[in-house]
Amino acid sequence: MKCSTEALQTFLDGELELAETEAVRSHLGGCPACRQELSRLRLLWLELEQEDEVEIPAALPFIRQQAITKARAAGQDKIGTSSVSLWNAQKLAWQPVLAGVSRIPGTRQLGLLARLAGHGLPGAIKGVSSMAGKIIGKRRDRH
């Protein structure tokens, strides 16, 4: 076989047929350039397989709550809204958001949310965080 980085990639992925694997092995035996390339690709593979440190946002419980609200609204659409009065629908839509607010343990997370809100949080969460901002404001006034 000829030198082929594509074959080397597939080889490293363990996705070659048995015969192809043998062909690559024997080629590697006689080709220092491909051996070097393989060791470089191995390095890349190691980097790619590292568990990426992803910072989990403190807003995740809010996102969960919003998802539940949306999912329930979608379910109601499916059933048909005729049996649900407008007020009930609004109440349903707001309850989980408010429940989410009351469950926030501290102002640190609120501050983080407020900061996150500037970066493309969905509209409803922005609403919550601006409310949260007001709550913090009041507390500060009192002290």
Partner: peptide, 13 residues
């Protein structure tokens, strides 16, 4: 991380 919040909500729904 900006996109991830929106994507996550969409996915969870």
């Amino acid at each position: 991380s900006e996109d991830a919040v929106d994507l996550t909500q969409e996915a969870l729904v």
